[in-house]
């Protein structure tokens, strides 16, 4: 009985406490960098597209809202021919970012994506691709991969020996 009165009293006192509400459009909350919001595709430090079209993000996506088609340029560098995220399905779980082996796909602290027309929530590559490396500066997948692309031949990646001379029999 006393405890009931006590809780009534304590709840009543909350009338005089400070409000927790942030009055959103006028006031804005500070979002941390690892906040999982709008998804972007980033570029490597040399401004090349980071996405290599490996399909891992699409496979990781629990709502299957990512679809893409890999293709390659004349030098053998892979990139997505199209890259589509249906944000009307996205649950912002961040699995795509975790799955990405090249740091290309990243979730950024922006959630203001409301649309009156649901079709506008379908983002294509031109809406997704940004001009920078996002949260992970410095990383360039092709610098560690063994594939030869334009401007980087065989054996020119990090920690790679020059190509073997197969005609040599020296042990």
């Amino acid at each position: 009985m006393i405890s009931i009165v006590r809780s009534l009293w304590l709840v009543f006192l909350h009338m005089f406490h400070k409000r927790e509400t942030v009055q959103y459009p006028e006031q804005k909350n500070k979002l941390t960098t690892r906040w999982r919001g709008r998804i972007v595709l980033t570029r490597d430090p040399d401004m090349g597209e980071r996405c290599v079209g490996c399909y891992l993000c699409a496979a990781a996506c629990p709502v299957d809202c990512i679809s893409l088609q890999a293709t390659e340029d004349e030098t053998g560098r892979r990139y997505p021919e199209f890259f589509r995220i249906n944000f009307s399905r996205c649950i912002f779980c961040g699995y795509c970012e975790e799955a990405c082996p090249t740091y290309a796909i990243q979730l950024i602290p922006d959630f203001e994506m409301g649309e009156y027309n649901r079709q506008n929530l379908v983002y294509e590559k031109k809406e997704l691709l940004i001009d920078g490396p996002g949260k992970y500066p410095g990383y360039n997948y092709y610098k560690v991969a063994g594939l030869a692309i334009g401007g980087k031949g065989k054996g020119q990646a990090q920690n790679e020996a020059p190509p073997v001379d197969i005609k040599s029999l020296i042990p």
Partner: peptide
């Protein structure tokens, strides 16, 4: 309004 008041909301 009152519920909000007692829950530190508006």
């Amino acid at each position: 309004r009152m519920l909000a008041l007692w829950q530190d909301r508006y």
